[in-house]
Design a protein around this nucleic acid. Structure first.
Length: 278
DNA sequence: ATGGCCGGGGCACCCGGA
């Protein structure tokens, strides 16, 4: 089973890139899109349905938006944190459409578009950290019910220095600041504080692990390159799109790779697909 | 040392991205 994640930076602008990629990658069972940038009524469903795919979309005007494109129908599709957390807990964190998930072959595939954060100390940075704190609760609750979880998407975080092309200003840069890294590492470890007392069972102590790093140790592998400064040609990128797997699924993982081909096309997305197989 | 480019909205630039 293969699951891919791709921030397409507008699904309408990138439509032929996405459909061509699906045709070229028929073994991909589910493609998770981020930054679709379109309300559900205007999502270009027909080109995907004509190829035989099932669509699950959760969009908004101009910004954000996520979607699942699946060869087979998905079970128990959920949109937003509010699908399993109460309104008071969620607060304003579902105003932006960034969370969608569904189940295929007993695996819950959770597709995320983590907030960018703009710049350290900004209002958007605080929003990113609050969003991640809520994600921790959401994952704790999700892991109470499933052992097989694939959390993928555009995380807008590079956890390791080798995930970035340069050493410069790393600590002061969005996506690699110590506070973001520490917060996110904490999200990946499910502890008592994120689970209600009576539900304390198997999920406690579970850590989600980076599928890409199961197979590749070296740096220089990236999933995003700035449109500016000929960054792609010079491979000045960041690895910020990921697949994090629960232990059982991580053990099963056979392969995880980045396909840089779509980044070479005319008018590309600034991100490129990351695929995991298990 | 800085910024360089995109997409959307909507028609002039501004917001947001990362």
């Amino acid at each position: 089973m293969q699951v891919a994640s791709w921030n397409v930076n507008s699904v309408r602008t990138r439509l032929s890139h996405v459909t061509d990629w699906l045709k070229a990658n028929p073994d991909v069972d589910v493609l998770c899109l981020q930054e679709t940038k379109v309300v559900d009524a205007d999502f270009p469903k027909a080109p995907f349905e004509e190829l035989g795919y099932h669509l699950y979309i959760y969009g908004q005007k101009a910004y954000n938006g996520v979607a699942l494109i699946s060869k087979a129908p998905l079970d128990d599709v959920r949109m937003g944190f509010g699908a399993i957390l109460d309104d008071n807990t969620v607060g304003d964190l579902d105003d932006q459409k960034r969370v969608i998930s569904g189940v295929l072959n007993g695996v819950r595939i959770l597709n995320l578009y983590v907030p960018n954060g703009s710049s350290i100390g900004s209002e958007k940075y605080d929003y990113k950290l609050r969003w991640l704190a809520l994600l921790k609760q959401y994952l704790g609750k999700t892991l109470e019910e499933t052992k097989k979880l694939n959390v993928c998407g555009d995380f807008n975080i590079a956890l390791e220095n080798k995930d970035i092309y340069t050493d410069e200003k790393r600590d002061k840069h969005i996506m690699s600041s110590p506070n973001e890294r520490d917060t996110f590492k904490d999200v990946l470890t499910i502890d008592h504080s994120s689970i209600e007392e009576e539900a304390l069972t198997d999920a406690v102590g579970v850590s989600l692990a980076d599928a890409f790093r199961k197979f590749t140790d070296e740096g220089g592998h990236f999933s995003w390159w700035d449109y500016r400064a000929a960054s792609f040609r010079r491979n000045m990128g960041w690895r910020i799109d990921h697949h994090y797997l629960s232990p059982e699924l991580y053990d099963q993982a056979k392969r995880c790779w980045i396909d840089i081909e779509p980044r070479k096309l005319e008018k590309p997305s600034d991100h490129t697909p990351v695929i995991v197989e298990y």
